[in-house]
Nucleic acid binder design. Structure first.
Lengths: 316, 316
DNA sequence: TTGTATGCGTTATCAG
DNA sequence: CTGATAACGCATACAA
């Protein structure tokens, strides 16, 4: 493995000069530059990135914590991050968490050990307060509304759109509103926001029987419907946490020849396009791009990005 | 920034001893270990990963080249790689290529510069021969059948399943077979394989008018159908390159009140499950997992993984 | 069991 | 414009 010292020796110049040639810096005569470059080419030499990172005290890579990749939320956000990262010649390290707190803690430790320059949490299981404490080791950006915790964030401003959605539901005289969500609203900011929007519009908490948690897949949506039916809960409108989940939900009713309650999806996935039902587009690519910008700038601020209600109900 | 020398100084022991404590190595008395550990804890010290990597000559990270992430092929394969990587405490660096040869070349250079220990090409635009030459700088694994090029590969053994699929089509008396594909068969191994399977079953080349290239999305599928209709090509069976694409294809006919040709999808996505049409599951998670194993073992070998025909036609 | 000294491959500072 | 040398932070062969 030939290194910069070898090149220095072979050219007869010093390592500093070789380094300058390598990094296209000034203060080296054209003549010397040419000679050194010739040897570099001849020896097929390239500098070692790790040594470089160590010397510069920077890795030019950003860690991205992903609970899992199956959900479109994460692929969209990752796409947004990737496109920005690539333009700016940053490396992206994907960190799968499955919402495991130990794993998330491990990633925070890696930031502390300088494995990457900054960390982006696309979502988190750990309390934000704990995550925030690690900011002294490097920029940390989360992709959800951080409440009163002082941490950088780029997030989809869902609340206004959720409110609009529930207003639409209320204005069309639906009363028994079912809500499917990924995680309980005590631990998930998104779920909490959904409940809050509901409260704001209806001036009361949603009926707890009508809230179904741990819904992440088509099959979960299917099971949620089954749960409603078995327990005769009869929602007349259901607010689903993704389009694909909405389809699973709907299918259960169809398979059993039951009338499907009205419903809305989220994510603006292909399935809502195919089956033409309403949904909410959360603009996650933009969220990803902004979170990356925050990560490398190191600015401590929040960037809300408005989501969009896509009404395909045929009614205004 | 406190480092190992500081700890050594504070404890009164040498850096080697501190290092041994850090790495849970032998040859250090319990008493000393406890003392050193106490100071480490007190100072809240953690070693620097970059320095570690440099010293060990290893990064414990693997680069994964992804043309893009929208396609389920890549998310599935990435999931497979991620689950393996995480178990073995490896870091994954995602490298978006968009099939750009310059970018791919850049990633090969990064391998050479020791930015990661190995490289996985989930797909590639560069000729395999060129990629193979970089193996002297570290293990490289590709996720497609490498033909006669001497390079490691874990790949979905699609050919047998494609043959089975076309046999089914032939045995059910379809004759004008349309084929939708991502890239031309001169540059894409997958497309080439599709054509070969067709040839093997029908003893002739598919009609070139019936082959549509550059199809990657729902909309592209939609356009492909439009193309068939406008030019009165009348395929009676269409072999689509993904389920979502198949849906776009079908929708065009429905929207125009035309009879939809029979068709099959690929990827076993949700859409084929919803709409209940046949598809092929390529087992990409397994491919991802195996490619990772190859990457870190450094073995130079090929691992075929059989894909599965999922017949939902109702006919045998 | 512990310490010393050197290597890992660069970049950066400062002197010339 | 060029060079010597000190960081960067850790691991490890060898010595004690």
């Amino acid at each position: 493995m030939t290194n910069i010292h070898d090149i220095a020796k072979m050219t007869g110049y010093s390592v500093s000069t070789v380094s300058r040639v390598l990094n296209h810096k000034n203060y080296v005569s054209d003549e010397v530059r040419a000679k050194v470059q010739a040897v570099i080419d001849e020896m097929d030499y390239v500098p070692n990135d790790v040594a470089r990172d160590l010397s510069r005290g920077k890795t030019y890579s950003i860690g991205v914590v992903l609970p899992y990749t199956k959900h479109p939320y994460f692929t969209q956000i990752l796409n947004g991050i990737m496109s920005e990262a690539f333009e700016r010649d940053y490396r992206l390290v994907v960190l799968p968490s499955a919402y495991d707190k130990d794993k998330e803690a491990e990633f925070l430790e890696q930031l502390r050990r300088k494995a990457f320059d900054a960390l982006i949490f696309t979502s988190h299981g750990l309390p934000l307060e704990k995550i925030a404490k690690y900011q002294k080791y490097g920029p940390i950006v989360c992709c959800q509304y951080p409440g009163n915790v002082d941490i950088s964030a780029a997030y989809s401003e869902r609340i206004d759109t959720y409110v609009k959605a529930f207003e639409w539901v209320r204005d069309h005289n639906f009363e028994r509103i079912g809500i499917l969500q990924n995680r309980d609203y005590h631990v998930s900011a998104t779920s909490e926001m959904t409940i809050k929007a509901y409260q704001q519009v209806f001036n009361k908490m949603p009926e707890s029987d009508l809230i179904v948690t741990d819904v992440t897949t088509y099959d979960d949506g299917h099971n949620a419907a089954k749960y409603y039916v078995k327990n005769e809960l009869d929602p007349d409108y259901v607010f689903c946490n993704s389009d694909d989940i909405a389809v699973g939900f709907k299918d259960y009713y169809l398979e059993n020849n039951l009338k499907v309650p009205e419903f809305m999806g989220q994510e603006n996935q292909l399935s809502s396009k195919i089956l033409n039902f309403s949904t909410i587009d959360h603009q996650f690519e933009k969220v990803g791009a902004s979170s990356f910008d925050l990560a490398i700038s190191g600015d401590r601020k929040q960037i809300p990005i408005e989501s969009m209600l896509i009404n395909r109900s045929g009614l205004v």
